[in-house]
């Protein structure tokens, strides 16, 4: 295992961790978004609550969820480590900022954007996940479904009526959009996937993903705040 630890502590090994955890989070966000589209259903929250019940009780999905929490933390801590290492590696900054167009605002501010996402995630998890785990959520039962399920839908509807919650969501999602705008294609480059045949496609997909996913999530608090 010595070789493996040596590999993971090399610069390329650390970047591989960033890339793989980042891609896992991208996959997770896709599933999370598609599932949560049920919040737009006008059925008093039945579909969403049943779905949430399934997602929190199925053992396989539970296992993946804990993996997900672990990967977020690993990605965040590794990202912060890399950022602080790189600051030292750069040393003194030039007095004149490089006007180089390739240094985009997003690519230069990945750790700050990541930090904003992390702050958002803590608030988000505290509001829904923790309250759900602590049992601060009412129970409901639906015809045709055995037993009671947690009314997470009600929790969402209450939260999204608060202006500050909506604003925090929007800020977090804008940060996510920028983070993914650079991160999506970066993850492939780190994996060594760069070829003139398909890299232009990866870049286009990355741009689309970084717009569609955050906008999709952003519509939820906006819809609940204004139209429910």
């Amino acid at each position: 295992m010595n070789w493996f630890i040596k590999f993971l502590s090399s610069s390329i090994g650390r970047k591989l961790i960033m890339s793989l955890t980042g891609l896992f989070l991208i996959l997770f966000l896709t599933v999370h978004l598609i599932g949560n589209l049920q919040l737009f259903k006008d059925d008093g929250g039945q579909a969403f609550n049943v779905y949430a019940h399934f997602m929190t009780s199925n053992p396989l999905i539970k296992f993946i969820a804990y993996g997900n929490y672990f990967f977020i933390l690993l990605h965040a801590f590794m990202g912060i480590y890399i950022a602080s290492y790189n600051r030292k590696a750069k040393g003194q900054q030039p007095a004149v900022t490089n006007p180089n167009v390739r240094i985009t605002w997003a690519s230069k501010n990945m750790p700050i954007l990541g930090g904003l996402i992390l702050a958002f995630l803590l608030m988000h998890m505290g509001d829904f996940w923790l309250k759900m785990k602590l049992g601060n959520v009412n129970m409901v039962s639906y015809a045709g479904i055995e037993g009671e399920v947690k009314n997470l839908y009600e929790r969402v509807a209450i939260s999204f009526k608060e202006l500050w919650v909506v604003i925090v969501y929007l800020v977090g999602l804008v940060a996510l959009a920028f983070h993914l705008n650079h991160g999506f294609q970066s993850a492939f480059q780190t994996l060594g996937i760069n070829h003139r045949k398909y890299t232009p496609l990866i870049k286009k997909l990355g741009l689309l993903y970084s717009l569609i996913v955050p906008i999709g999530f952003a519509l939820m608090p906006i819809y609940y705040y204004f139209f429910r």
Binding site: S10, I12, S186, T190, G192
Partner: peptide, 30 residues
């Protein structure tokens, strides 16, 4: 430092060495 795939290097390189060199190296390393 560790590459963040920004691409500033490729824009400033006087010999126009491209980022796919880094992808090549990562593949060779893995």
């Amino acid at each position: 430092g560790m590459c963040s795939n920004i691409g500033a290097c490729e824009a400033e390189c006087p010999k126009e060495i491209q980022l796919y060199n880094i992808a090549y190296m990562n593949r060779a390393y893995f």
